[in-house]
Amino acid sequence: MSETTQEVSPVETREGTVEITLKVNGKSHRIAVEPRMLLSDVLRHELGLTGTHVGCEQGVCGACTVLVEGEPQRSCLMFAVQAEGREITTVEGLTPEAGLSPLQAAFERHHALQCGFCTPGMIVTCEALLRSGRPVTEETVREAISGNVCRCTGYQFIVDAVLDAAKEGAR
C-alpha cells in the first residue's frame, strides 16, 4: 500500500476538530475529528468500518479490539487522535477479498459464534495470538481471549476453532 496523505483530499475542519491521518487496513484517511472522539467511534461512524463492535466502552468486553501496530488493543479506550500515524488493523483488514481467512473458516467449522457480536474482537485477538508465534494450547487460547467476553458460546467452540486453525497453519 503506497497511498500517501497527499492523495487524499483535505477535509474541511469543523469547529473544535483537529485533522488527523489514520492508517487503517493499509489505507490512509485524512479526517477531522473532535479530540474526545474514541477510536472505536471514528472507525465505525467516520470510516464506516462497522465490523469493530462496541459492547461496553468500559474497556472490559473486548468487542472493540483492533490491532495497533500488530498488538490487540481496545479501540474504546483510545482516542482517535492517539492513533494518529499508527498502523491500525480491524476485522475488515483481516478478511480476504472473497471467502474467509483460515481462522474465520475454523470459526465457521466449529460453530464458534452465535450472535456474532463478540466475533470480530475474537478474530482480531486470536489472529494476533496465531501470528505471535507463541504456543497455541487450550490454556494460552483461553488466556488470550480472557479479555473478550462472549455471552453466547461458552467459549469452548472458540477454543476448538483457534486450536484447529493453529494446527492447520502449522501444516
Binding site: R44, H45, G48, L49, T50, G51, T52, H53, V54, T90, V91, E92, T95, G99, L100, Q104, F107, E108, R109, H111, L113, G116, F117, T119, P120, I123
Partner: peptide
C-alpha cells in the same frame, strides 16, 4: 450443518442496528 449466517458475521459485514447510517 455449518451455519449459513456465519460468513457475514465473521467478515465483519453483518449489520446491527448501530451499523445503519
Amino acid at each position: 450443518v455449518t451455519r449459513l449466517e456465519d460468513a457475514r458475521l465473521l467478515r465483519g459485514q453483518a449489520r446491527y442496528v448501530d451499523d445503519f447510517e
